[in-house]
């Protein structure tokens, strides 16, 4: 598959990735040779039952773990050759994580949570604040910047997590079961945000077991026993995501948050 844009390196380039946990008799083959490329602007969903290896793949793609064999290039950088310190920088600059359990830091305001990756990236305080507020506005939480995670609903928490993931303008947004802990309304909200981000050119990779979630992606991959068994393209890489196109057709409630940010926040 060639890049539809400019022939630049793919955002994700995994080659025959194998991951084995444990040794000898008790060894578990979580991934048995996964190869894939994901290009800029794509919206990919990994599907699979539990135990199919999708979380392992997520950890490797997110540079939280290294493959046993095989190589993995993120935005042209071979991850296998990096030190722990370089991996931390890579995660900070190139990746945005959205977890199933939100993983916000307790007792820190939404704003402080969103600022955190910028703080570790060495961004100055005022610039950080400005960008964090912008990111929170983008997910429709412009007026809740001072709230702590336990004062927010699940959907709101996940939107803060999305804001935190995209505040560094990463090359790749990785979402691991982002709607797994959310009710239907919150799920729709979060998916709409992901759709919009993708429509703006952000590369998104979602791991899910729900077909409704996968239906929002332009490309769906199915994992079984550590292997990719199905690779379906639903929409072209450089077009709008299917979810957004459908919303435009059916006048779906759509991305309410975009207009939901208050006028008071506009000035920021």
């Amino acid at each position: 598959m060639t890049s539809p844009h400019d022939g630049a390196a793919p955002v994700l380039d995994a080659r025959d990735v194998v991951k084995i946990y444990g040794h000898g008799e008790t060894a578990v083959h979580a991934l048995r040779g996964v190869s894939l490329e994901v290009h800029r602007g794509d919206y990919v969903a990994f599907m699979g039952a539990s135990g199919s290896g999708k979380s392992t793949l997520m950890n490797i793609l997110g540079c939280l773990d290294v493959p046993t064999t095989g190589s993995y290039l993120l935005d042209g950088t071979d991850v296998g050759e990096l030190t722990q310190g370089q991996l931390a920088v890579l995660r900070n600059r190139k990746l945005g994580f959205v977890f199933q359990s939100f993983n916000l830091i307790p007792r820190m305001s939404a704003l402080a949570n969103v600022e955190l990756p910028l703080a570790y990236g060495g961004v100055g305080a005022s610039e950080r604040r400005r960008r964090a507020r912008a990111a929170l506005r983008l997910v429709g939480l412009g007026e809740r910047v001072g709230h702590e995670p336990n004062e927010l609903s699940g959907g709101q928490q996940q939107r803060v997590a999305v804001a935190r993931a995209l505040v560094t303008a990463p090359a790749l947004l990785l979402a691991d079961e982002p709607t797994g802990n959310l009710d239907t309304a919150s799920t729709a909200e979060v998916l709409a945000i992901l759709d919009r981000l993708n429509a703006q050119g952000r590369t998104v990779v979602v791991i899910t077991h729900e077909t409704e979630v996968a239906a929002h992606a332009k490309r769906t991959l199915r994992l079984v026993d550590g292997r990719i068994v199905e690779d379906v393209r639903n929409a072209p890489v450089n077009g709008p995501p299917p979810g957004l196109a459908a919303a435009a057709d059916a006048t779906d409630p759509g991305p309410e948050p975009a207009s939901g940010s208050g006028p008071a926040e506009r000035g920021w």
Binding site: G62, L64, Q84, G85, A88, V89, L90, R91, N92, R93, L95, F97, N103, L104, I105, P106, L116, P117, Y120, G121, R164, T168
Partner: peptide, 16 residues
């Protein structure tokens, strides 16, 4: 521990 994991996932270097 979990908080440390989150911080590391979003790119906190060891020395931080």
């Amino acid at each position: 521990t979990r908080e440390i994991g989150i911080r590391k996932a979003i790119g906190a270097p060891r020395r931080a």
